[in-house]
Nucleic acid binder design. Structure first.
Ligand SMILES: [Mn+2]
Ligand SMILES: [Mn+2]
Ligand SMILES: [Zn+2]
Ligand SMILES: [Zn+2]
Lengths: 146, 146
DNA sequence: AACCCAATGCAAATATATTGCATGAAGCTG
DNA sequence: CAGCTTCATGCAATATATTTGCATTGGGTT
């Protein structure tokens, strides 16, 4: 659990009514150390009580829309979701393992990106800079050589 | 047309027989100024002569596998494809317009990424660093305000 | 000729996400 | 309170992108 974030507050601060389902989704996303797919989130929620898959998708969409959650692309077909950057969470790159689909959060300093110039010169609206490392994670690498 | 690249050579250099279909796919990808989806590529090829959608997917997979073509994720659901970095094409970031789906190639210098440290310290295998800017392109931005 | 293999095609299946429509609860209006 | 509206949710159907299974074909090989 992220001790900085009160999820109800995060929701209302983003103009979203804190419905039980929204809180549950946000808890799963926020409490996890790495980003999850909609399907992962759904499966976790299903364990404790029933919720519809579509509801999960819709809630994730709203959370992304309102800047509470970040939608992250992977080297695979599904999006993953993590807490959006805020006062306590700096933007940072992710590592995606193409074998197991696990995504890791890398530290914000692991890799420096200078976007200054781009922001000044790009003739369109920039919403987000996503940096993703693709490869094979330590575990999968080991498993391969066995 | 990229005047540096001979596509037949690129294929054989990558241990791929230069079948007519492969050459056609690679021409479409290589001659285009920006990355295209499998579906875009299929539609373009269909115009000149018949080819199966699945063949396009399979060829793209082989080309990616053998390092001739790069698979690029977008803020949307489909992958885009562009020439893989080589002696004449440096790696570079892309801009993805979430309104029209158009992807732009940005110059390699538009944005500097220092991955040194990461390569040294990351305890897994790194295959690729992808940098993608998401937003709304100039055209779509203009259209919105009208 | 008989065999083999890789490339291709076509149909079906899969994975992921979205849409349309129904229901019910909460809040507001008069 | 009765009637109206809005919004969250569920369920079924649909859409989109991609993959798989299996058949065919054509070129090389024994
Ligand atoms: Mn993260
Ligand atoms: Mn490019
Ligand atoms: Zn892995
Ligand atoms: Zn656009």
């Amino acid at each position: 659990m992220c001790h900085h974030c009160n999820y109800e507050e995060l929701l209302s601060g983003a103009d979203l009514e804190a419905t039980p389902n929204r809180v549950r989704v946000l808890e799963v996303v926020g409490d996890n150390r790495f980003p999850l797919s909609a399907s992962d989130i759904y499966k976790i929620l299903e364990r404790s009580s029933t919720i519809n898959r579509v509801t999960v998708y819709r809630i994730l969409d709203r959370l992304v829309e309102n800047g509470v959650v970040e939608r992250i692309s992977t080297g695979g077909r599904a999006f993953y979701y993590g807490l959006a950057p805020n006062d306590y969470h700096q933007p940072h790159p992710h590592f995606y393992c193409k074998m197991c689909g696990q995504m890791d959060c890398l530290s914000p300093e692991s890799l420096t990106v200078d976007t200054e110039a781009l922001w000044k010169t790009y003739p369109g609206r920039i919403d987000k800079v996503e940096v993703r490392i693709d490869g094979i994670c330590k575990n999968c690498e080991k498993r391969q050589t066995e």
